[in-house]
């Protein structure tokens, strides 16, 4: 196959870039998106265990509600929220806004911080309402 068509050009790998905030946010968008793949697999597992009945679901909860399970959910919620606000940044850019380097940096910084803030708020509510405990 590669005899007939020249290979597609590849994206430059991480070590080529100089670190700056929009590059960090771009990489984080891919990292958090990839991590969210694990999130949707676990949500599918949650639904399957629920459909299989009380006994299976109790086994699922033994893992999901354990400290290690909560750490995994925390990481997945962080990935989800940061990916969500990162997506918001991309949608803003799609509107043709915030393209000046300074504005783009500000937007990238604030959307990353907003993702972290949403995660902290989510878990603060979970713990303070007593629904989740270690």
């Amino acid at each position: 196959m590669s005899n007939t068509t020249p290979p597609r050009p590849l994206s430059p790998h991480l070590q080529i870039w100089r670190w700056h905030v929009t590059m960090l946010s771009s990489i984080l968008h891919r990292v958090t998106g990839s991590a969210s793949v694990a999130g949707i697999v676990l949500i599918a597992a949650w639904l399957i265990c629920l459909a299989l009945g009380r006994e299976t679901y109790t086994v699922f909860l033994q893992y999901a509600a354990s400290p290690l399970g909560l750490l995994v959910w925390f990481g997945l919620s962080l990935a989800g929220f940061v990916h969500l606000t990162g997506g918001l940044r991309h949608l803003i850019w799609d509107l043709g806004l915030s393209f000046k380097p300074k504005d783009a940096d500000t937007l990238a910084t604030w959307t990353m911080l907003l993702g972290v803030a949403l995660t902290i708020a989510f878990w603060a509510v979970l713990f303070t309402s007593g629904k989740v405990a270690l």
Partner: peptide, 21 residues
């Protein structure tokens, strides 16, 4: 579409957290 749906899912997770089966 996933922006409101994800936020709704977070609300749903809070709803069922600690409530068991």
């Amino acid at each position: 579409a996933l922006i409101p749906l994800t936020l709704w899912a977070a609300w749903g997770a809070w709803q069922i957290a600690g409530g068991g089966f």
